[in-house]
Design a protein around this nucleic acid. Structure first.
Lengths: 117, 117
DNA sequence: TCAGGTTCCATGCATTGCACAGTACCTGGT
DNA sequence: ACCAGGTACTGTGCAATGCATGGAACCTGA
């Protein structure tokens, strides 16, 4: 019933489209610093306004990452609440992240080039 | 038979996803400087490597912009070849572009924040 | 016992970049 | 007059992705 973090609507048409294909790599980047679980990732992303998202986004995304072999998971008990599934990078995940960090600056500068004129 | 500009495959999984939702505003930004026609937009975008795209992308995109009232068009004869459909910004188009240019820096910095660490 | 918080998962939809295929116009060579 | 090649526009179908929605399972505290 409660809208809480799980169901919070994420407004902004342009923002939503901007996140496409980037959220995935932001998650990989966060995981670079160590294993994290779903809700934890939501909080880390949400700390930056424009990256606020919802469980309906993050869990299917994490499933895809796992399906594609970019992350591995292990269950771990929680001090309070249901067990947590922790995600961590595989070598493939590191490689994908590295590839993105190489492309991103070019893309960023390209958009800046067109927008600011 | 010839693949030419129309059918040139655009490689890169991450690049393709990055363009989502951004190409639209790059087009609007180009149109800010005056009316342009389809192939002309393709060339302007293609001048920046990471923004290379194809007719299969640009024409449906332009149709959407027109459908949503962000651009208006008028036909004009070509000195050589079939007539060209020129696109130009409407007030709504200007507004959408302005909104994007306001959001983009935050988004750009957010990605930088996560990626570089 | 039970309300509420925490954590996870699956389904369906809209948007969007893209490959592919097709149509129509014009110019120049034969 | 014919036709090959370049120019320019259009439509269909697919795959990827963010998101709303709904739901299940586990734990704590009143």
């Amino acid at each position: 019933m409660e809208p809480d973090i799980a169901g919070k609507p994420v407004a902004g048409k342009a923002e939503s489209q901007l996140r496409k294909g980037v959220l995935e790599y932001c998650v990989l980047a966060i995981l670079r610093e160590g294993p994290r679980y779903g809700v934890e990732l939501l909080e880390t992303l949400g700390a930056v306004n424009v990256m606020v998202t919802s469980q309906g986004t993050i869990y299917p995304l994490l499933s895809r990452l796992r399906r594609d072999g970019l992350v591995e998971t292990r269950w771990q008990e929680s001090p309070s609440g249901p067990p947590r599934r922790y995600y961590e990078l595989t070598p493939s995940g590191h490689a994908a992240l590295k590839e993105f960090t190489a492309v991103w600056p070019h893309f960023r500068d390209a958009v800046d080039h067109f927008i600011t004129d």
